Amino acid sequence: MAINDSDKDEDEDENEVSELLELLEKFSFENSSLKKTVKALTKENASLKNELECSSNKTLEDKTISLEKENEILKVEIDALKKPFSKFSNSSEKLDKLLGLQRCVFNKAGLGYDEMNNVKHCQKYLEKKDKQKISSNMTCNYCNRHGHTIHTCYRKKNDMHKRNLLLKNKLLKLRTIWVPKGTFVTNPPGPKATWVPKAST
Rank of each mutant, 00 (worst) to 15 (best):
S91T: 10
E53G: 09
V76P: 02
G112E: 12
L165A: 14
N187G: 00
D96E: 13
L95F: 05
K8F: 10
K124R: 11
K63G: 12
F27G: 10
Q102H: 04
K129Q: 13
F106E: 00
L98H: 01
L21W: 07
P180C: 09
E44V: 09
N31D: 03
K83P: 06
D7G: 15
N117R: 04
N15F: 07
C122V: 11
N118G: 13
A46P: 02
I150C: 04
K131M: 11
T183K: 14
P180I: 06
L98S: 04
E22I: 06
A199D: 15
K82V: 10
K162T: 05
S32N: 13
Q132W: 08
W195H: 14
V17F: 00
R145L: 14
K170F: 02
T183D: 15
L95R: 02
T183M: 13
L172P: 02
T201C: 00
K108F: 01
E25C: 08
L99V: 03
S56M: 12
L171Q: 05
T37E: 01
P180S: 07
L172I: 03
E44P: 04
M160W: 08
K133M: 08
M138S: 09
K128M: 00
S92W: 00
I177P: 00
E12H: 04
H121K: 09
Y125G: 02
L20M: 14
K129R: 10
T152W: 11
T59R: 07
E127L: 06
E72N: 13
E53Y: 07
G182S: 05
R103H: 01
E93I: 07
D96L: 12
K181S: 09
Y113C: 04
V38T: 06
V196A: 05
L60R: 05
Y142R: 09
K94D: 05
A109R: 03
H146L: 14
E72P: 03
Q102G: 02
E25H: 12
P180V: 08
C153K: 11
V185N: 15
T59A: 12
E25V: 10
F106V: 00
P197S: 10
K129L: 11
I150E: 08
K173V: 07
D9C: 14
H161C: 10
S56N: 13
K94Y: 06
T194N: 14
F85T: 07
M138K: 12
K124T: 07
T186K: 15
D7K: 15
E72D: 12
E16H: 03
K94W: 02
D130I: 09
F27V: 11
K156V: 01
Y113L: 06
N118P: 08
L60C: 03
K192F: 04
G190K: 12
E25Q: 14
A46D: 02
K39S: 10
E70G: 05
N187K: 05
L41V: 09
A46Q: 06
L101P: 00
M160I: 13
S66A: 15
D96W: 09
A80M: 04
K173M: 08
S18N: 11
R103W: 01
G110K: 08
M1N: 11
L34V: 03
P188G: 01
Y125C: 07
G110H: 05
T152S: 15
